[in-house]
Design a protein around this nucleic acid. Sequence first.
DNA 1: AATTACCCTATCAATCTAATAGAGTAAACA
DNA 2: TGTTTACTCTATTAGATTGATAGGGTAATT
Lengths: 136, 136
Amino acid sequence: MLSKKTKYGLKALTYLAAQKDKQPVQISEIAKAENISQKFLESILLSLRKSGFLGSKKGKGGGYYLIKDPKEVLMTDVMRILEGPIAMVPCVSLNFYEKCADCPDEATCSVNKLMLMVRDANLEVYRNNTLADLIA
Amino acid sequence: MLSKKTKYGLKALTYLAAQKDKQPVQISEIAKAENISQKFLESILLSLRKSGFLGSKKGKGGGYYLIKDPKEVLMTDVMRILEGPIAMVPCVSLNFYEKCADCPDEATCSVNKLMLMVRDANLEVYRNNTLADLIA
DNA sequence: AATTACCCTATCAATCTAATAGAGTAAACA
DNA sequence: TGTTTACTCTATTAGATTGATAGGGTAATT
């Protein structure tokens, strides 16, 4: 299951990407428009800022804004920040690799074999889609 | 993340598929060979039996055995039983469709759009792989 | 200087997962 | 026929995670 964090994060990103000007948008505005718990959204936007997707401005007229061009924001990066590893098992993860404690041999492991194919299929989708593609 | 249930279930299925004869294999043998908690494996095999993948035989010399030819066992069916919906959000699920409560319009929803592509990519993998493919 | 809106910490109920325990039941075999 | 074997079922549990909420703190505009 996709977590609400990722769901909300994606919605917020596309909301910001759809803005005509680059003016900051208040959290409250996004939360209201997308039916998201404002406090929860705060923490999500914060992590998106810390990972370099968003900028923020404090004080009156402040809010969050997209740093890069939506065309430059790859879904691989977004998903890894919001949802975590793209792979369904650590033993096939590119960025979060870990050996399975119980599995004696990856080369002959059926789970490894299947999940490797699944990972590649997912990567293919995430690599070929940017934030801009989700709006059009 | 792939649940342990699915992981163990897949391992058990491939273990049974790799058997030369069609003789029943005891739970304890599979559990030992694949490093799985026996009691947990019991419940998994039970659900695989109830959903038509496995047959069982009680008493001495009993155990579980594969009902169909491994070539006929599609990963789509296995995954749906073990892991649940293939889609990451209910609003793009073929077999478990549900409208998102918070989303006003699927047609313009960015999450829907992305997850639809992800679902199709995953389906492609699961449809093109059978239990037999995981052994070879 | 006051307001606005981001920033951070802590807490919480609900849910899910993985594992375990223990008793029950059906089938095989001597 | 009776005992053994191994599947079947119910219940319980600790632990982790999720999603949400509360409340105060801080920095930057006006």
